[in-house]
């Protein structure tokens, strides 16, 4: 709470973001590069899936960050809605495009992985299906922002869309999993993080943190950008004072 109210001030946020954004960027670069290096050359292959398991290091963190981005977007929208804070709106808006991009990356890498483990690029597998729906949610959110001319209204409506979507996300995920177990009898499932040996877990974690910092860098720079733009536009001459006369 303290951190939030501290950063709610646009000037302090600007100061924080100016310092934090480059740090996030550098951290992201370092973590992703080491993650890829360890993932591709310094980790063992999977007993069942062979080298194709290495796609996981790109795929799983991308889906995670995609979901995290949606959660962050909904949370920022909630703050914006309750306290009518424009900075939170900017924050929510800045989450959308990177979030959608990570989700799309998750789908793309997932389909490549599918080709090696299922033999097809697409399966109506539980995780793939709910990731696809997540992408639809992101697109809807961005479309609302893009199509509403009045910015204040766009922010509030898009915020509502994000909040309603986030409440539904667990229901969607649950129903899709239920549906999936009903119809899918046998397929090689993608490995999940908890069951992984440490040698596979390390690159996965490196990539997850790397992606997170990359996401943080994208969001902070986007918010910085829009704050300074809004600042320029604000500096217009004020209205002249109205006059009152009696008839």
């Amino acid at each position: 709470m303290g951190v939030i109210s501290f950063l709610a001030n646009p000037l302090r946020f600007k100061k924080f973001a100016r310092v934090a954004a480059p740090i996030f960027g550098v951290l992201a670069l370092v973590l992703i590069v080491t993650g890829i290096w360890i993932g591709l050359w310094r980790s063992p292959e999977d007993q069942l899936q062979g080298h194709s398991v290495r796609i996981m290091y790109v795929h799983v963190p991308a889906v995670w960050i995609g979901m995290m981005a949606y959660a962050a977007m909904a949370l920022a929208s909630l703050f914006a809605y309750i306290w009518r804070h424009p900075l939170s709106d900017e924050l929510a808006r800045a989450c959308a495009l990177p979030g959608a991009a990570f989700t799309a990356l998750g789908l793309l890498s997932g389909s490549l992985w599918g080709k090696t483990s299922w033999g097809t690029f697409w399966q109506w597998d539980g995780r793939m299906t709910s990731t696809l729906i997540l992408l639809f949610l992101f697109i809807g959110y961005m479309a609302v922002w893009a199509g509403t001319p009045d910015k204040r209204r766009a922010a509030r409506i898009a915020g509502l869309v994000a909040m309603v979507g986030s409440i539904n996300l667990p229901i969607i995920k649950f129903s899709v999993d239920w549906w999936n177990t009903l119809h899918q009898t046998s397929s090689v499932s993608m490995p999940d993080a908890p069951g992984l040996p440490p040698s596979n877990l390390l690159p996965l974690m490196l990539m997850t943190f790397g992606y997170s910092f990359f996401f943080g860098w994208l969001v902070l720079s986007q918010v910085l950008n829009s704050i300074s733009k809004a600042g320029e536009r604000r500096q217009r001459p004020a209205a002249a004072s109205p006059t009152m006369e009696t008839l």
Binding site: G140, A143, V144, I171, I172, S175, W178
Partner: peptide
Amino acid sequence: FLLVLLTIPLVVPVLIFALG
């Protein structure tokens, strides 16, 4: 079109359970 896009993700669970 956007209305369809916004609503479809929300009615996915409805469709799944209804047909089940």
